[in-house]
Amino acid sequence: MKKYLIMLLVLVMAAANAQAQGRKSLRINEVMVQNDSGYVDDYGRYSAWIELFNSNFAPVEISSIFISNDPENVKKYPVPLGDVLTRIPKRQHVIFWADGNPSRGTFHTNITFTPGQENWIGIFDADGSLIDEITIPANLLPGQSYARKIDGEGAIGDPEAWEIRTGEMGNTVTPSSANVLRETNKKVEMFAEQDENGFGMAVIAMCIVFSALLLLSVCFYIISKIGAKVTRRNKAASHGIDLKEVEKSDRPNHDTGEEIAAIAMALHDHLDAHDRENTVLTINKVKRAYSPWNSKIYNMRDMPRH
């Protein structure tokens, strides 16, 4: 019983860890400190914003995580429970407003930035463990954002993975959308460019297919050998004979299946040597495609009684 309880506990811990794993994929993706003429909130105001990105390929529930701009108080803004919008679909973004006005709704935080100086921002899991953080440089001008070069990519707090977006063509500010717009599938493009005639794909893929099945084949060759050995050993042990004798008796010295069948038929025909089966009945079940729907009786009403 104790063993099962421990197993159950391990499973529960694993499940809890799986939930945490999902949240660990959350990333601060883009931040704007001074929003003077850009993205408008649901109250029609220009406010600073923080964009989070779910880098996972499964939805992530972010209620009860914390957003903070104060390392001394990492639980500054808890994302409230009970809002369906806090479930971020796979590879999607969500905007939090740093307007210092949490009474306006789930996505309005009590955080405000100080323009002209470095601003630190961090997101923390419900247990207070760090999920992601970044320090926003002081030289960010109004209307400019600080964004990851590629959505969700780069180590935690690594400024190399970030860049300043000026809002000009080719360096656009992208609140609530992907930092890099992908119009085509890069893998397909690469194959179209590098492997025009498909020979490369054919070679690589056939190598993989062959190796997978070869691996399986070798594995089963080994398993069958081990299996045969174990069977022989068991047989030797149960019959109390030497292993070599078992091997000898296993070796066929005859006679294909066809030959055995021919001998049996010959015995049957000429010696009438077969079991007495007079009392054996062979009953084959006859299938009838019956259904209440094709039975006329079900189409009839009961006769009215007078």
Partner: peptide, 27 residues
């Protein structure tokens, strides 16, 4: 298949059809 695992390789070889057709489709 289990009795004669080397037959698995025949199953792999027939997949040439897929990648041959892939090359012609690109063409």
């Amino acid at each position: 298949l289990i009795a004669n695992p080397k037959l698995m390789l025949i199953g792999a070889s027939a997949q040439f059809g897929i990648f041959g057709a892939y090359m012609v489709a690109l063409l």
